Computed example of a mutant assay.
Amino acid sequence: MPGKAADPPALMTLIALSGLSVVSLNMFLPSLANIAHEFQADYALVNLCIAVYAAVSVVLQLVMGPLSDRFGRRPVILAALLLFLVASLGCLLAANVWVFLAFRMMQAVIAPAYAVSVAIIRDFSAGNKAASSIGYVAMASAVAPMLAPMLGGTLDELYGWRASFWAFLVMGGATLALCWLDLRETNKTPAATFARQFRSYAKLVGSGRFWVTRCA
């Protein structure tokens, strides 16, 4: 059973969540040719899912942040993980390339988990402690995408392209169980409305400090 609502989640929970969010981007890349061959589809069409996945991720970054501010971090993360599991299963069972691509785009729902993980850290810590925790999460997010293609290539070589999506299913299920048990709600001051959240984007885009930080 989850512990007290005031207890912060373990750092390992946030590292696992962030790692899954970036591993899902490129672990299956070594399998693109085999996916195109099995579905008798143009390789360029299958390859297009990378760019579209990235675009969907960007849009979801803008949506899931306000959702977690409005309704809480825990329900948004749990819902994202559930949808990720459904999408992974859909990719496994896809009978044609269009169904595969549709579920692959759906997998992008997990991509904003890194940003929400950082928000969770800021909810319960500040200063050097927050910087240290964010550093560990960022390190996992930097290392995971470097190792993921090697793992995906090995799985593809041994068991075929669907093995990567079985791995997504296993990793997603394990992360969901971990978050269900350990991720308590940390957002104690939920936003009143979505309108207020989205109005803040205009102010952010007009901030010189924001652009200096992004370009640094």
Rank of each mutant, 00 (worst) to 15 (best):
R209D: 11
G135E: 03
G173Q: 04
G3I: 04
S164L: 06
A108M: 04
S207R: 05
V99S: 04
S21L: 00
A33I: 12
G153C: 13
P190F: 02
A55F: 09
G208I: 12
G152Y: 00
V76Y: 04
T13V: 01
A177C: 07
Q40E: 13
T175D: 07
L93M: 07
P30Y: 14
S164T: 08
V118A: 11
C179R: 01
L82N: 06
S88G: 05
G160H: 10
S132A: 13
T213I: 15
P75Y: 09
A192K: 09
L83P: 03
M27V: 11
V143P: 15
A113E: 10
V212T: 11
Q40V: 11
R74P: 00
N128E: 12
I35H: 00
L17M: 11
C49S: 11
V205K: 15
A174Y: 15
P145W: 06
A202S: 09
S164C: 08
P149S: 02
A87Q: 01
A163R: 02
A167M: 13
E38A: 13
Y159W: 13
A108P: 09
L204Y: 05
I35P: 05
V109L: 02
G19I: 04
S133K: 07
S31A: 12
A216H: 15
F100P: 00
A6C: 14
L151Y: 07
Y43I: 13
K188S: 08
G208Y: 13
A167H: 15
A131P: 04
R162G: 15
R122T: 04
L45G: 07
Q61M: 09
A54Q: 13
F71Q: 03
Q40K: 14
L93V: 10
G160F: 08
F71Y: 09
C91W: 01
M139V: 09
A51I: 15
G206Q: 06
L17S: 00
L169Y: 13
M146Q: 08
R184L: 05
A111S: 11
N34A: 15
L78T: 03
L14W: 05
Q61K: 09
S141D: 12
A79I: 07
D42H: 06
A80K: 00
P75I: 03
A174E: 11
L93Q: 08
R122W: 09
F124S: 10
L78N: 05
A163P: 01
A33W: 10
D156T: 00
A79L: 03
M146Y: 14
S18E: 15
